Amino acid sequence: MFIQTRDTPNPNSLMFYPGVDILPGSTLELTSAAAAHQSPLARALFRVDGVKSVFLASDFVTINKDEAAEWSTLKPNIYATMMDFFASNQPVVLDSYEAPTDTAVSEDDDEIVAMIKELLDSRIRPAVQEDGGDILFQGFVDGIVQLRLSGACTGCPSSIFTLKNGVENMLMHYIPEVEGVEQVFDEELDNVNHDAFKALEDRLGSDKV
């Protein structure tokens, strides 16, 4: 197995591509070994000293490291852990795992929410996932779209700027009922490097819509 890596805008996050399917059509962020009970792969990765969080996506894994840890030390251990794991033929997630449906349009969604989710899925999430993260719909209240960031962009202070200058502008342009966006934080998530999500600004903020 040849595992490739890709940098993210966050120096404390790195994307690993093992060349096999990880979590097709979904994402899953795990921020501690205790929370990783639903993913044997994540449990194995948390045994590597210096791994802070694990983000599983369709064909890659984003690792957030402790600031004091060095990638030069971490990467060989992560490579070995991944190769051993996939050689064992264990499932990436247990059968009890249910993929999140935060951005999937459901029959209960009204027309505005359905349009918001469709735009997130088709235009915004792909750009975020290219940088090793994800953006999930959490609600639409009084004209405000509530969104949660995960992966390489978890807890990133500059994400507020990106949301206001990129995501918000796009949603308001296509959907007049949207008056703004706000970031929803998961209390279990720790903040990571403040540059993590800034790369999305140019991609979305300058989009001529």
Rank of each mutant, 00 (worst) to 15 (best):
I63V: 06
N64G: 12
L14N: 06
K198M: 13
A44T: 14
M1E: 11
A69T: 13
R125F: 08
F16V: 14
G132P: 02
N193W: 14
I135Y: 00
D142Y: 05
Q138E: 15
S53E: 04
V141G: 07
V178M: 01
S32K: 03
D95P: 00
E187V: 12
V178S: 03
V178I: 00
G180N: 07
F85K: 05
H37D: 04
A196F: 06
E182L: 09
N10G: 11
P176V: 13
Q38D: 01
I3N: 00
A152H: 11
A152F: 13
S88G: 08
E168D: 12
P11I: 10
L23I: 05
L45C: 11
F86E: 08
E187L: 09
L94D: 04
L171P: 06
N12V: 10
L147S: 03
Q138Y: 09
N193V: 11
P176H: 05
E188I: 10
L14T: 14
A87W: 06
P91S: 11
G25V: 13
G155E: 09
E98C: 09
F197N: 06
D102R: 12
Y97W: 08
D121E: 15
V51T: 08
Y174A: 11
R43W: 01
L45K: 08
L200Q: 15
K52S: 07
Q90N: 08
